[in-house]
């Protein structure tokens, strides 16, 4: 599945993360770009969280840009969920 519209959630504030997601053509796969103040320490766990959530939503063809300023796990998940919701709701509205 791919979202039909671009969406974003989160902020540039400290302890927060901003997600931008946009649809990709079918069969393009996932493209994840992560910029983080704690990339060395938490890059892998961040990626794992994102991948698992995309799996849950069965989103396969999606471009994600994340700008992280040390968000904790509940925040990362909340922001991504919000972005996905916003995107999916737009699909329904279309």
């Amino acid at each position: 599945m791919t979202p039909k519209t671009a969406a974003q959630a989160g902020t540039f504030e400290s302890s927060d993360v901003l997600f931008l997601i946009e649809p990709l053509p079918e069969k393009s796969g996932r493209k994840i770009e992560l910029f983080s103040t704690v990339l060395h320490q938490y890059g892998e766990s961040f990626n794992k969280i994102v991948t698992e959530m995309l799996d849950d939503y069965a989103l396969t063809d999606i471009h994600i840009i994340a700008r992280d300023k040390g968000a904790l796990e509940p925040t990362i998940k909340a922001r991504l969920e919000t972005a996905i919701n916003r995107s999916l709701q737009n699909i329904q509205q279309v």
Partner: peptide, 15 residues
């Protein structure tokens, strides 16, 4: 509002 709702839910569950 949608973002805050989800954030509060996640935070209350884990923090």
């Amino acid at each position: 509002k949608d973002a805050a709702r989800i954030l509060i839910r996640n935070m209350m569950r884990t923090i």
